[in-house]
Design a binder for these strands. Structure first.
Lengths: 142, 142
DNA sequence: TATAGTTGTAACCTCTTTGATTACAACTAT
DNA sequence: ATAGTTGTAATCAAAGAGGTTACAACTATA
């Protein structure tokens, strides 16, 4: 299964908030316009980003802002904020290997550290990329 | 979304086939017993592993065998055999960013190389682990 | 203070994927 | 000829992704 589009969406949202912070009040409707994603979905993502301390949201008057310098927000921060992994694990293990079988009895403990290695490799790369990198690359294009 | 249990299941299956190759005819029913997964699902996974050239299956008489030395089969081989990723991409991009918005117009091209970096980091780690590693660790436990 | 624009959230919908299950034709060693 | 297997289709339930409508709660401001 692919990683859900909530991730790229969340990055898009953060970059948008920062890019237009001086020109517009960046509301869920505004972000819905840029992303072409339903405003309720945008608000859900914003809520998750807020819970992770990455953005701030003004109730009532409306509008979102980024909560820290872009260089301090990594892809991993965003990934963990919006991607719901069961127990934080990237790999879903088949539930009930047969304990009466020598392979079934041990497969979980034998595989676990390898799966962690793979997940860690991915998360390390995610944490090496910041929103500032994205903003810089975007500015190049503009 | 987590990576489906088909992956750990496929690894379990391969290790089982190799472990019991001299003692039993390893059929989908046998593997179903060790994994606690429905035999039709096992046959489906076996079919994917066969298409990838990782196992051989005897029609009629029944029984599966591993098609090459364990050290030549990596986690990446198995991952690619059983995990169905749209266009082989780990990340699902939100479909229609607004082209009239400077962010929406460029977000895809700005993010793409970063997403590839993450996917590559993960695949590199997957390709560094072989079924022989697993077999060795399992033998330690037995 | 009344209002208008927002946010937060619940409820419901559709689509897709996963995994289970039943059923059965095709195959092959014996 | 038979018994045990494989390959595959059809159907099912459960879960997750996204979309959509609706509305109460909130707050800046007129």
């Amino acid at each position: 299964m692919q990683i859900s589009s909530r991730f790229t969406l969340a990055v898009h949202i953060c970059i948008c908030i920062d890019t237009f912070k001086d020109e517009y009040k960046v509301t869920s409707d505004f972000l819905s316009g840029s992303t072409n994603v339903n405003p309720v979905i945008v608000r859900k993502i914003l809520g998750q980003l807020k819970s992770a301390g990455l953005v701030e949201i003004a109730r009532g008057s409306g509008g979102a802002s980024v909560a820290k310098p872009l260089r301090e927000i990594t892809f991993l921060d965003i990934y963990k904020a919006v991607e719901c992994l069961d127990k934080g694990e990237l790999f879903h293990f088949h539930e009930n290997p047969n304990k009466k079988c020598p392979v079934g009895r041990n497969i979980h403990s034998v595989l676990d550290d390898k799966l962690v290695r793979v997940q860690t490799a991915m998360e390390n790369e995610l944490s090496s990329i910041t929103l500032e990198d994205i903003k810089n690359d975007l500015n190049q294009k503009l």
